[in-house]
Design a protein around this nucleic acid. Structure first.
Lengths: 190, 190
DNA sequence: GCAGCTACCTAATAGCTTTAGGCAAACGCA
DNA sequence: TGCGTTTGCCTAAAGCTATTAGGTAGCTGC
């Protein structure tokens, strides 16, 4: 019989697409086997197990977002950079909801350290260099931005903003404006 | 044989406890049956299916959080109210990680409308009455607060803040301070 | 053109979900 | 107290996913 040409690479990619179609939690080794027209057991030569597959999808998503982030930041600073970076997250989540969820998949410490998550943190710091914060406020601000972006995107994905005015885009812009204002006027510790 | 005394109520409660122990996604009809020392099929007289069970756990969690929120808001206003309310979310998530995740479970529109989610929104508005915002800024602010709280809590639960200084509690306080400052100085629309 | 690697297969185990149909305990009522 | 009905719990069975063990045949390199 002809071989199907399954590789870890292709599996991961197909898994990411599947995640976008049916949701990250619904990504299943069985469904992938079906898509490659191959028996389920065959996939276990390419991927350790289901958890391994999900980890790989998560790493892929983190890479893709980090790449987009880096492109968005090139040549920008200050609020411009902040807004562009924020849009990267939101746009990615809207285009690739399954991958976005995957990026939130809890990685074991080794995987996390080797992941593009590190680049994300660096980019966030780079943006904050355009504002006048010093430690530990910069860290607090990194955490606030991460929380606000991730929170907004995941609430929006859950449909929380879709049944009331104003629309999600408008709130997003105004929230980015507000965060910019806050960073320029970060309150001193009490 | 003696009857085990399973009820929808008790199932939901046990499901919530199980969620806190092993994670909401790992809540399984089978495990619950084991805990009630009853055959799996028996549970299907009390609960429509797995999705129904999870919905009930979600509704329970939303109720519990709303009750805590209401208690925290009683007699408070302004920043005091903001901080107390914020702590309700974070503390609940730390005490009941599985239930907190459950509260984020996507409900069908009817269930959502009948849920305590409505009370959450009302309380958020009540807090904002202590600041000087008018529509549509108040809505934007509601969304920002929801995003920031939820985002922070879920990043903290994922361990994002646990491997670097300063500790999660300190950032949390400073972020609440910052959000308070922002609400008192909300930037005008461009 | 053969040796060996490996992609893919069959077979089997095990767990979770859900439906159908049956028995007996508990409850309502005379 | 005894009868009938409700219903809580059971057995049985089918279908899905995950995972492991061991076999076969296609491709690669010499």
């Amino acid at each position: 019989m002809a071989r199907a040409g399954v590789t870890t690479e292709r599996l991961t990619r197909a898994g990411a697409e599947l995640a976008d179609e049916v949701g990250f939690e619904q990504v299943t080794v069985s469904e992938l086997a079906r898509r490659f027209d191959v028996k389920v057991a065959s996939l276990y030569s390419h991927v350790k197990n289901s958890h391994d597959l999900k980890t790989r999808i998560a790493l892929l998503a983190l890479e893709e977002m980090a790449d987009r982030g880096a492109a968005a930041l090139a040549g920008r600073a200050g609020k411009d950079a902040l807004a562009a970076f924020a849009d990267v997250y939101r746009d990615y989540a809207r285009e690739h909801p399954g991958r976005y969820t995957a990026a939130r998949f809890r990685l074991d410490p080794e995987a996390a350290a080797a992941s593009a998550g590190v680049r994300h943190a660096q980019m966030m710091r780079a943006i904050l260099r355009g504002y006048d914060l010093s430690e530990p406020d910069e860290t607090h601000a990194v955490r606030l931005l991460g929380s606000a972006f991730h929170g907004y995107v995941s609430l929006e994905a859950a449909g929380s903003f879709s049944h009331s005015a104003p629309d999600a885009q408008e709130s997003w812009s105004r929230i980015v404006d507000a965060l910019d204002a806050l960073l320029r006027n970060w309150p001193a510790a009490p």
